[in-house]
């Protein structure tokens, strides 16, 4: 059992305060949805957790199984079990996903020879064309293909906790279903992962069922509840929370 514990997290982007005290706990097997309007700071939360340059926590804590994430460089946060599926996956010309995953396996003491077979299995599971897998990272991929690629990497790396930043944007209906099913499967079974899904639509949650929903605005969580919050959001919008 793993847990990501975020307590009273404040953060700045550049010098601008964006997060104003975020507290949540995600455990193995749980799916948490963070839902909020554009510009509410949702992406900042994911970037601060992963340590993107320019995003800085000013107070509060974030730990994964007791490990102080904020004290670690990004790659060690990943090695500790955190994964970030990017909203806009970066193009890296000439670099192939197999090489990246093999390097990550090596850095975490796993056998890099396992990567090729697992990539093939995961590509098949989410209907990702294997010829696209061989391309340079995210280069000449459509928005949907990039998101499948993120999901493939997540599945091969098997993190403890995955943060999904707008994973549903750019995905067509079929791709959304394939990706959501794969993620749903990852949260069940003997060694499930925990998911923190950042989204402003509820469509990802039609297949990937959220156990906990956080309504997020102005850099803080306004409300936390069960899936019923999604229904309220659909009916009344964020204005219902005064956002």
């Amino acid at each position: 059992m793993s847990e990501l514990v975020v307590e009273d997290l404040h953060a700045v982007v550049g010098e601008t305060p964006i997060l104003h005290g975020v507290t949540l706990t995600v455990r193995s097997g749980e799916v948490h949805a963070v839902m909020g309007p554009n510009g509410s700071g949702k992406s900042t939360l994911s970037n601060v957790l992963m340590g993107r340059p320019g995003y800085r926590a000013t107070s509060g804590t974030a730990t994964l199984d007791g490990v102080d994430l904020l004290a670690l460089p990004t790659w060690e946060r990943a090695r500790a079990g955190l994964f970030l599926a990017s909203q806009y996956p970066t193009e890296v010309p000439g670099v192939h996903v197999a090489d990246v995953l093999a390097a990550a396996f090596t850095a975490s003491g796993r056998d890099p020879a396992l990567v090729a077979g697992r990539m093939a299995d995961e590509a098949a599971a989410i209907g990702f064309d294997s010829s696209l897998v061989d391309r340079a990272l995210n280069v000449d991929l459509s928005g949907g293909e990039k998101k499948r690629n993120e999901t493939l990497q997540l599945a091969v790396l098997e993190p403890r906790i995955a943060v999904l930043d707008e994973l549903d944007s750019g995905l067509d209906v079929d791709a959304l279903r394939a990706v959501s099913r794969r993620l749903e499967a990852a949260t069940t079974g003997p060694d499930p992962i925990g998911i923190l899904a950042i989204t402003h639509y509820s469509r990802l949650l039609e297949v990937l069922h959220a156990d906990v929903v956080h309504i997020f605005a102005g850099g803080r969580i306004l409300d936390t509840g069960g899936p019923e919050l999604v229904d309220r959001l659909e009916a009344e919008g964020y204005a219902s929370w005064g956002a």
Binding site: M50, G51, T74, S86, P89, A107, L157
Partner: peptide, 24 residues
């Protein structure tokens, strides 16, 4: 950052990026 976020150490990430840069 993208490569590091997959768990690739910084120096290895830079080596991969430079090798990719020359690939073309």
């Amino acid at each position: 950052f993208y490569l590091e976020s997959r768990g690739v150490p910084t120096d290895v990430a830079e080596r991969l990026i430079v090798a990719g840069f020359f690939d073309e």
